[in-house]
Each structure stands twice: as C-alpha cells, then as structure tokens.
Amino acid sequence: MEDEVLFFQEFSIMGKDFSNAGTVSTQIKAILKEIGFDPVIVRRAAIAAYEAEMNVVMYADRGVVRLRVTPHKINIELEDEGQGIEDIELAMQEGYSTATPEMREMGFGAGMGLPNIKRNSDEFEITSERGKGTRLNIVINAR
C-alpha cells in the first residue's frame, strides 16, 4: 500500500490578492504538523509552499494547490493561469527576478524563490507555457 493517499486537499490562490498571500502555506504547514511529520520535513514543505504561493500571487492570475500526502511522500502541486515563464532556465537562476518595487517592499522579489523551492524539494518539476500558466510539482520524502 505504498501510495495510499492519507490526505488530499485542494486550495485556491488569487493573483494579486496580497492580503491573503501565505494563508495556503500556513494551512499546509498546520496539516502536515497535525499528521505528525518530522518538524524538519514540515519546515521544508512550508518554505517551498510559501515561496510557490507568493509566486502565484505576484505573477499569475489564479492558481490551485493540491496537497497529497502518502505514507512516504508529501506532494505539493501548483497549477496557475497567467503570464507563464518564458525562459525557465533563467527564472531558476538565483537573483533573477521580474518583481516590481511594490513586491520588493513586501520582502519578496530577490530572485531566490524558485531556487529555494528546488533546494527544499526531493523532486522538483517546473513547466510553463507563455501566456497560459505555470505548473510546479514539489515532492518531499518523509523520512
């Protein structure tokens, strides 16, 4: 029963809704903690989810987040509709950012988000279509 789904929930994120930015990741953190994952794992998942959530808020129109938990894995999938990313390799580079001054004032837009999501993931996939949207698949192994 390796891949038995212990928990599944879908969340939605609205683009530009800065006042609710972070609520999905905060909920994900609470759920994972409640399930009883190692705090180090919970922290990694929460950090990855938060950076990814902020990206949807900052750069996309709307998105969904699917949290899927199995006995061995935490899977966070984000799918958004929006401008998409033209050059993924460039976007993945530390320091690359198209954030506006307003976003920087909020403490984001250092170009560290995607690299840090990847660093906190055991498996990480990003695909994007310009003018359509972006999909991130984050997997963190439970130890």
């Binding site: 006042s19 930015a21 972070g22 990741s25 905060t26 953190k29 705090p39 922290r43 929460a46 950090i47 938060y50 909020m106 403490g107 984001f108």
Partner: peptide, 21 residues
Amino acid sequence: PGTILVTGLTNVQSVITAHVA
C-alpha cells in the same frame, strides 16, 4: 530554526515568514 529575526519589514509577510521558517 529558532533564531531571532531583526527586521525593518513590518507587514504581515514578516510574521508569516517567521512562522513558516
């Protein structure tokens, strides 16, 4: 984890970030 954060950023993101990290 467990560090003190000294910051000039006063918005709600500072607290969410602290909670997440």
